[in-house]
Design a binder for these strands. Structure first.
Length: 273
DNA sequence: AAGTTCACCTGATGGC
DNA sequence: TGCCATCAGGTGAACT
């Protein structure tokens, strides 16, 4: 579900719970993503603490607590963090419920591809270093020369390389399709064969499409919503994602769909060479 | 070892 | 109405 713009939107929408105290918490389903369980002491360890800050790291939501612990949330494909009225009754896929001073924060995730973790705040950098993620797609360090280096020697299609979080962090299927279309780059192009000129075009376009989506509150295809329940309106601005057989917005040639790395890939074979 | 494929899980949708 | 196949904003393990 959520790529960088959706996660960023959620983080911003959680502003109201900053400085609120955690009254208590409940976990209804410890087993989420394979190989990742919510720590058994999660509820005990966060009870009575105050939320000091909430930030986004790549597609992760990072919630700092006053006791030097930090909650990590990844939304997977179908996860939501939602702010509800107090005494909210958990729903079928509510896995975590946190009662705060003035709200109840819940984590819903039907497919359970997401992740909720609790770590020591001073180990955050280690935690993410282990994932060997690339720089954030919106960071200044994400520049054409950085991308050039990262694509060095990669014969895999550029579409797949950009989905790889070790190359650049934050992109997902929607925005890679959109950015490659806007940059007129064929998704199957071997990553290392892109020229300096291509990358100088592509990088700003990636940032631009992400920023524009954040302004629209992200893209809601199905499950995604902000923590106040509102959907993302960038879906209305999508140019190629999900547009198979519809006319290309530039040349009217039908948009095609191919599978790359097991993911649907939408593009215009006339515009993207 | 880079490049693929597949599994994880639930729900929605469409064809028959 | 029901049953089956297919597909979905992600990730990482297990293949070649």
């Amino acid at each position: 579900m959520p790529e960088l713009p959706e996660v960023e939107t959620v983080v911003r929408s959680l502003e109201p719970i900053k400085n609120q105290t955690i009254i208590d918490a409940n976990v209804y389903q410890y087993q989420l993503r394979v190989g990742s369980k919510i720590p058994a002491n999660f509820c005990d360890d966060i009870k009575g603490t105050t939320i000091t800050n909430i930030v986004r790291i790549a597609k992760y939501i990072v919630i700092n607590l006053s006791n030097q612990k930090t909650i990590i949330v990844h939304l997977g494909m179908s996860g939501n963090l939602l702010l509800k009225e107090q005494n909210f009754t958990p729903e079928k896929h509510t896995h975590v419920l946190i009662n705060l001073t003035n709200h109840t924060l819940i984590y819903n995730d039907p497919r359970r591809f997401g992740l909720v973790d609790l770590i020591d705040t001073n180990s955050i950098s280690d935690y993410f270093a282990k994932k060997s993620m690339g720089v954030d797609a919106l960071a200044d360090e994400f520049c054409p020369s950085y991308l050039k280096t990262k694509l060095q020697g990669r014969k895999t299609p550029i579409k797949i390389a950009l989905l790889n979080q070790e190359v650049v962090a934050g992109l997902g299927n929607i925005y890679v399709c959109e950015a490659l279309f806007m940059a007129k780059i064929h998704p199957s192009t071997p990553a290392s064969s892109l020229k300096k000129k291509d990358l100088e075009k592509l990088v700003p376009i990636i940032k631009q499409v992400l920023q524009k989506s954040i302004q629209a509150g992200g893209t809601t295809l199905k499950d995604y919503k902000s923590s106040d329940g509102t959907p993302g309106y960038f879906v209305q601005e999508l140019l190629v994602y999900g547009k198979e057989n519809l006319p290309c917005p530039t040349c009217k040639h039908p948009i095609e769909k191919i599978i790359l790395g097991g993911r649907s890939t939408f593009f215009c074979s006339k515009c993207q060479k």
